[in-house]
Amino acid sequence: MPILIRRGWEIPEARVTPEHLVFGRRKAMLAGAGLLAAPAMASAQEAAPLRAMRNTRYVPGRDITGEREATTFNNYYEFGSDKGISRPAQRLPQRPWTVKVEGMVETPREFGIEDLLRTMPLEERVYRLRCVEAWSMVVPWTGFPISALLEVVKPLASARYVVFETAAIPAVMPGLRQSWYPWPYIEGCTVAEAANDLSFLVVGAYGKLLPPQNGGPIRFHQPWKYGFKAGKSIVRITLTDRRPVSFWEQIQASEYGFWANVNPEVAHPRWSQASERVLGTNARIPTQLFNGYGEFVAGLYTGLQNERLWA
């Protein structure tokens, strides 16, 4: 019995970003400049612009991945277990959106996404993203270091871990019907890792608001770790003294560990991590230790050699 499964990339012509938008972004941005305050119905194609100065400290060293590739090839199990979830993900309401920051902090708070956009020090950073599945992309994120947020709530000295919880809204997330997965999606890192300047809360991509399939309205990214560590559509950030067991670690602990730092020498149980496919190109390039961010983060792991740091 042949079963036709529609692959993610089989999108109708109508969903391709119109040429005049791709090649006339400046104009489109000017036209949309006043819309920032009311992007309620923004979808991937008509996301409101979000401009910020580019941080030149972190250079990607390779071409930025096409916006179309980066926004139509997404791991987001809440919407489905293949990569083609960009369309169903549009149903995730982006406004109103709040992020609770609680647990071991002096002043627990709930932030509206608009408040974060207004008060946090937004900048653009072009990050390499290396997926544990041996593919990578380069994305211009807009966002702010999570340390800026943590300064506001003041973690207690006893807090050791930061836990990120993804939204779980059954009405719009069909994947939640797969009731055997340990929803909601949980990820986490240590407070020391979060304090690193690279640890970035992302609210935009390609100069626009972050589309839902990429984790809009707010996601996390630590570019020296495999991509699954980067929680999407975050609704809660908890500081705790207990190491969290993440979504993927619960499902398959042998393949997805807590630290998950990129290392070409340490193979995944099912494939080599020595090289990676660059999304949208025909290139397969060598993978770098810490995804090439070692100079900024290697120091975080001195004295942790006994931990399973690499996968």
Binding site: P174, G175, R177, Q178, S179, W180, Y181, P182, E249, Q250, I251, Q252, A253
Partner: peptide, 18 residues
């Protein structure tokens, strides 16, 4: 082969909404 609770998977056979 996984850390998933197999009873939840078995139960899900009764759920046709996905």
């Amino acid at each position: 082969a996984t850390g998933i609770n197999p009873w939840r998977v078995l139960e899900a056979n009764l759920d046709v909404t996905f």
